[in-house]
Design a binder for these strands. Sequence first.
DNA 1: CAGACAAGCGGACCGTCGGTCCGCATATCC
DNA 2: GGATATGCGGACCGACGGTCCGCTTGTCTG
Lengths: 183, 183
Amino acid sequence: MRADATRNREAILRAAEDLLAAHGAEHVSLDRVAAAAGVGKGTVFRRFGSRTGLFQELLAERAEALARAVGTAGSPLGPGAPPRARLLAFLDELAGLAERNLALFAAHERACAEDKYADPTYVRWHGHVAALVGEARPGLDASFAAHALLGLFDADLVGHVIAEGGVTRLRSSVRGFAEALLG
Amino acid sequence: MRADATRNREAILRAAEDLLAAHGAEHVSLDRVAAAAGVGKGTVFRRFGSRTGLFQELLAERAEALARAVGTAGSPLGPGAPPRARLLAFLDELAGLAERNLALFAAHERACAEDKYADPTYVRWHGHVAALVGEARPGLDASFAAHALLGLFDADLVGHVIAEGGVTRLRSSVRGFAEALLG
DNA sequence: CAGACAAGCGGACCGTCGGTCCGCATATCC
DNA sequence: GGATATGCGGACCGACGGTCCGCTTGTCTG
């Protein structure tokens, strides 16, 4: 990749972030992103393929730290921890991530509406959660339960809960729900 | 309302149904609906206000029988039945409804993406489920849990589960999930 | 440093969509 | 049968995601 291409790529990602933060997820069109990045529209599409691709990449970037934490032993998130605690810790992290990136979650959701199960980040999360559910609560349809648990971070729901009680409420509601489910 | 207006209204609803059944939820634009109904586009908007309104109305129509069943005593769905059984029965009905109207659920979801909590049918379902959860499992955030349980009928998830194991799998996964949650 | 070539760029352009508007038609009522 | 409001249709609009192609510019070679 040419140096200017790398620079533009970064500029586009940062512009998308800024627009998401400034206006809602609804008002971030690719024309706007391109303009804000000081770049032609074609460049956005060449780099990211589509609106979907852009937001997938952005989410992947924001989810990277979590993915690393999940992979490294030592924390309650990492391998070695008991499945139930590991799952609860993961969901708690996800709650934080969703709160900090609410607009991005919303935009990502909209963009991936067709075939959300094709999103790499979602797939990774789902695999992780399903595996832990399978260990922590055998007998359940683990894949189904994992989709349901990830559904807790639907942007509308998160926004609604946060509007009423902030992240604290979200975290405790999620935890309460998961604990009830896991028995 | 004038007689022709009533007729057109019905024609539009039926045309929307047919198109949903024939092509996926994705390919049902209001132009198409209008054309299929043998009606001008303006008429669709005068009757239903917006795409959202049309699909809300269609869903309300399909959900009417369920609403009636919930309101009348005698069945496991109706008042008087023990909350836990009542909730499980309601979710089971919802699974059937979702399966029979998958395309409609998908279209409705898309159309109500902004502010899904404003949809009258969703609000009614949520109130019902939250009340039952509150009775059957005190201590949970009932409103949150109700949103989560209704999230089980996300069109993508339903479609995914049904593709693998039909309605049977959906029903049993939903039931298993709800039973685990309620303890 | 020069020249050649690929890689990248930008923005005009396209089809589609949800939604609006207004001049015309027609059901309804007296 | 005439008056009136209710309803109708479809041309029109702005915004959007996505494409395309002629021009530019970074990079690599000698």
